[in-house]
Amino acid sequence: MAPLARFENVGLRYGTDAEVLRDIGFRLDPGSFMFLIGASGAGKTSLLKLLYLNRRPTRGRVTLFGEDIGRVERARLPAMRRRIGVVFQDFRLVDHLTSFDNVALPLRIAGVPEEEVRADVEEMLDWVGLTKRAHARPRTLSGGEQQRLAIARAVIGRPELLLADEPTGNVDPKMAERLLRLFQEMNRLGTTVVVATHAMHLLPHVPAAKVLRLERGEMKDPTGTIRHPPGAPAGTRA
């Protein structure tokens, strides 16, 4: 099976700073679920930026959907991005739009007819429990509501690849588990899921997940993804 994404000796630096990612190599199979773990500043967000085509690698090769993203023409990026859903660490909700319009955005950008948009968005808002806040502005939502809205916007287009950057950072443990179940549900429906988190206690909830651990920009286990964490400290378990 061809990998959905493949990293080979990947390095990334911002400007002329030192590399924040070094010698990253792994493959992401279609339909898989992967946790990206590591302390704050380890490079999780930077690695996701390569996957959501916000950066090209400064060294090595990243292949996504069969394309070398270091070389792919800029004009082809939007179509690739529409196959990816992203829950940004800082949500990046569009402030002047209502919850409804935020969730509708990816569909409208893709040119989906408005009747379909309406039905899909209403269903999605219901799924994340935001139907009552459909006409509220993101600024007026609680942190947890904003996070669910960001997730709704990321999954509305039924992406092939779902990237979630610390998606449970602003919610209580119960909501965190619910959101994780939502990602698993997506995964069961065929979406490849990557969840970046420093919350190790989430890992046991998804036993089938692979784990990629980053430490100061390097992969902790150079052989690639590990089947299961060797053991999250007992105290951090939910």
Partner: peptide, 16 residues
């Protein structure tokens, strides 16, 4: 700038 960046990241073409 911020909104345009988000639009790009969720797949908007420059032409939009």
């Amino acid at each position: 700038a911020e909104t345009i960046n988000v639009l790009h990241l969720i797949g908007a073409e420059d032409s939009v």
